[in-house]
């Protein structure tokens, strides 16, 4: 019996795996796969479509419109007309000034939470999303403070009125 056990013990020792080579492989492979992994996450912007059943109980005193044209962004109120025009910079839309203007409008009318973005047909989708981010109130390029949190979260989309910018510049 003793002899049998001794033999079995010796047998088990022999069966032990040498994992060193495997560990070396893993040490290389894990960081490599982590580098390859794409840390992008898909999220969505929900839209308020006109006529989606949300009743306009009482129209707020400010009906904010952000008109995106090829060369500028115009902030206007449906009743008062143009509030501010923001010319493009060389790099494209002046998102920072747009955000500042929207923040100052929001401080004057804190109860307003909806806005309409009106676009010309040739505006590309990325610009739409960037402007929408700004109007919603999430700072476009992650400005230091979350100052712009929740400006006008209920965003609708529409067509920009024809003509080049309404009132003269």
């Amino acid at each position: 019996m003793k002899r049998y056990r001794a033999r079995r013990a010796r047998h088990q020792e022999a069966a032990e795996l040498n994992v060193t080579a495997f560990m070396n492989l893993m040490v290389v492979l894990v960081p490599f796969l982590l580098i390859l992994a794409v840390f992008s996450r898909i999220t969505v912007h929900e839209l308020n479509l006109p006529g989606s059943g949300v009743a306009d109980d009482d129209p707020p005193q400010l009906q904010l419109e952000v008109v995106v044209r090829a060369d500028r962004v115009v902030i206007s109120d449906r009743r008062q007309g143009v509030l501010q025009e923001i010319e493009n910079q060389d790099s494209g839309y002046d998102i920072e000034r747009l955000a500042e203007a929207l923040v100052s409008i929001k401080t004057q009318a804190p109860e307003v939470d909806r806005a309409t973005i009106l676009l010309e047909p040739e505006i590309d989708y990325q610009s739409l999303i960037t402007v929408m981010d700004t109007v919603r109130g999430t700072a476009p390029h992650g400005s230091e403070e979350q100052l712009y949190e929740a400006l006008f979260p209920r965003v609708s989309i529409g067509d920009a009125p024809a003509g080049d910018g309404g009132p003269e510049t």
């Binding site: 898909i42 929900e46 989606s52 999303i129 999430t138 230091e144």
Partner: peptide
């Protein structure tokens, strides 16, 4: 989409990390 009877439309985007904080 609305004509076909879909009342809720969402636009998908890739989330980018705001420079200050970290995403994910």
């Amino acid at each position: 989409c609305t004509e076909a009877g879909f009342s809720q439309v969402s636009l998908a985007v890739t989330q980018t990390a705001p420079e200050g904080g970290d995403s994910l």
